[in-house]
Amino acid sequence: MDLYRLAAIAALCVYAIALASPANAAAQMRIVSLAPSVTETLFALGAGPEVVGVSQYCDYPPQVRDLPRVGSFLTPNLEAIIALRPTLVVGLELSSDVREIRALNSMGYPVLLVSDDSVQQIETSIEKVGARIDRQDDAHRLVAQIQSQIAAIQERLANAKPLRALMLVGHQPVVAVGPGTYLDELMRIARAENIADAVGQQWPHLSMEFVIAMRPEVVLDGAMGTDQSSSSSFWEKYPTIPAVRDHRVYGYAEDPMLHAGPRVGQSLEIIARKIHPEAWDRETVGADK
């Protein structure tokens, strides 16, 4: 049976049940999230109990691990979403042309799409979600907290000299963080010059010849995770790279670093501490951890 026809039949069944049960109109919201950043935002705003389905990539906070999975923002499972009887589906703007999203809209399911490619977009998304689920005050407080975290780190790094840096998410192939991503923005806030910006792609595949020629002074390597020795054999082949020579190749955990959303301030601090550890070695601003 055609996907749209099947979905339409399911939608009619849900509608009929709703008409037969007036009490359902007063029930709490049933929210389906199609992206990790959206899920984290919903829980950060206190709407966790109203989340009934999440994307296959959602893993934070821990409570989401037991929730039904409904695909992802680019490959949503229409039947699974409809089966959860959502009163709101929240996804990313990137999926606005995905046919399943268009189908949900055409069948009358409320859909809210947000963006998370920059700090400003993350903050705007939090405000939009908060307004839609009637948690405006919580959204204002969360955005203010993020702005405070970022401002404190900017103040701490005010006199730091920018360093050439490279942030990788994988080795095979070598994939870097490039311009137009929130992580590239965090690197700039952390007083780093991202060598991958020269390529002009959001997630460029780099050759080691390029990396050697650009001479990064700091490398953040996601393939290493939190084990600093796990990729030593990879980097020891390139001793002329300043970051390798000076033992400034650092691993990082994917969580929270690769999760755009409410923990953006935490991710920024992780990056900043690795690029400019000296700013935390002195008691100039705030209290050290």
Rank of each mutant, 00 (worst) to 15 (best):
L6R: 14
A8V: 00
A11Q: 09
C13F: 13
I17Q: 09
L19T: 03
A23I: 08
A23N: 07
A25Y: 14
V32P: 04
L42Q: 15
L45Q: 02
A47N: 08
G48W: 08
E50N: 14
V51L: 01
P61Q: 11
L67Q: 15
R69N: 15
S72D: 09
P86M: 12
G91N: 07
G91L: 09
L92W: 12
D97A: 13
I101V: 14
D116N: 12
D117V: 11
S118V: 10
Q120K: 06
T124W: 05
A131P: 08
Q136S: 10
Q136T: 09
Q136P: 02
A139D: 05
I153D: 03
N159D: 06
L166H: 06
G170Y: 13
H171D: 03
Q172R: 14
T181F: 04
N194S: 10
Q202W: 07
W203F: 10
L206E: 02
S207N: 15
E209T: 10
E209M: 07
P216M: 10
P216H: 13
E217Q: 15
V218Q: 14
D221P: 02
D221F: 03
M224L: 00
D227W: 06
S233G: 04
E236A: 05
T240Y: 14
G251K: 08
Q266N: 09
W280A: 11
E283D: 13
